[in-house]
Amino acid sequence: MENLEKKIIVNDLDFYYGDFQALENISLEVPVNKVTAFIGPSGCGKSTFLRTLNRMNDLIAGTKVDGEVLIDSENIYHECVDVVNLRKRIGMVFQDPNPFPKSIYENVAYGPKAHGIKDKDKLDQIVEKSLRQAALWDEVKDRLDKSAMGISGGQQQRLCIARALSVNPDVLLMDEPTSALDPIATAKIEDLIEDLKKEYTIVIVTHSMQQAARISDYTAFFLMGDLIEHSLTQNIFEKPENKKTEDYITGRFG
């Protein structure tokens, strides 16, 4: 991992919800164009940590961050950082598929339009490209003007991925993207992640250790707000260094 180019570098990050410290002294590096998975039991802080990477936690009142998160060597918690611009570079896919109650086309075109693209041809291109990247184009190309609420949960989640890709981010954060989906839809999303890492740096939070093992290159194990171990996925699952990691992997708790 030492030789890889780093997309995200986190140094000594503490995170608080009011008085409660949810993350303690996290330091971690995310290599570019790889899939990094965060695993750990519920409440371990993995989703909170994911959300510090695009500052979505800013939306919750009473939260506090110490330490630094460098993305392309730039500290995103520096006071001069424009959060809006940051989130354009760091796409996010949520746990529950959350397409807007608009047409499929409008869902994907929303981001580019918000960032000032008005030209219809250009928008058409972006929509097609994003939907193709999300492996959804063939399924929806004949009903782009239909409501996004009318497609299946798995399709909705891929639409959300297309929507996240539409603004051309470098990093894709995924917060348990398949936990609301059936196994077939999950498999499709996993295949997709495999394809997407060629162009994007992907960080995925997952409840499922099998999923982490299947799709990630690196895995970080969180427990009670601490980062216990972070290594090549193979190492984590085959020869974990920390006893707690081993206990979790082998199903002794969590």
Partner: peptide, 27 residues
């Protein structure tokens, strides 16, 4: 209007005002 729509919009790098006008009110 569910919070998840607003979150999705903000995560795309839009500001609160844009989210209100383009997502929340239409929803």
């Amino acid at each position: 209007v569910p919070d998840k729509y607003k979150q999705a919009s903000l995560a795309l790098g839009t500001n609160r005002w844009h989210t209100l006008i383009k997502v929340t009110i239409p929803a």
